[in-house]
């Protein structure tokens, strides 16, 4: 029983710690993107023409994103393991990275990864603390009759 509790406590400590490097590794693959619902090629071509014709002096990121589709959300987001085929880098502004969201697939967000990491890490830490507490109680109980 004590051996089992020891293994459980060690495993919980390992999980509480190891989830962080895993999350950081996942985040290292992340890219910061603007989500868009993409337009078809014909519409993009028309938009490129009208963008050039109505060229404003300082087009905003929104103006450029609108050439390729409809922006979803207010701020760019970090996504892990992005699908390269869905990434669009506009010629008009190379610093922008757009990510086409279509159908039922959505990329994993760093925000979600770190939220889950926190939940798992805190949960495992609480479990480890509980197991260690139980272990020490059991050990004390075993030690008492021997002393008596």
């Amino acid at each position: 029983m004590i051996k089992l509790l020891k293994i459980g406590a060690i495993a919980a400590v390992v999980v509480a710690v190891i989830v962080w490097p895993v999350a950081w590794y996942m985040d290292s693959t992340a890219q910061t993107v603007h989500f868009i619902s993409p337009l078809d090629e014909a519409a993009v071509e028309v938009n490129k023409f009208t963008f050039e014709e109505d060229a404003e002096e300082n087009p905003t990121d929104e103006d450029i994103i609108a050439i390729y589709g409809s922006k979803s959300g207010s701020d760019p987001e970090r996504i892990v393991f992005p699908d390269d085929s869905k990434i669009i880098r506009p010629d008009e502004r190379k610093s922008l990275t757009l990510y086409a969201i279509e159908g039922d697939s959505r990329p994993l967000q760093s925000q979600f990864v770190f939220y889950m990491t926190r939940v798992v890490s805190i949960g495992a830490a609480v479990a480890a603390f509980g197991l260690i507490l139980l272990l020490s109680l059991l050990k004390r109980r075993r030690a008492q009759p021997a002393a008596a």
């Binding site: 337009l39 078809d40 959300g73 959505r106 939220y115």
Partner: peptide, 24 residues
């Protein structure tokens, strides 16, 4: 008339995640 030129998006930004919904 053309789904690829019809984009309605709805976004919920919460603590846990940002949900991106859409219909064409």
């Amino acid at each position: 008339t053309h789904p690829a030129r019809t984009n309605i998006t709805f976004v919920s930004e919460a603590d846990l995640e940002t949900i991106h919904g859409y219909t064409n």
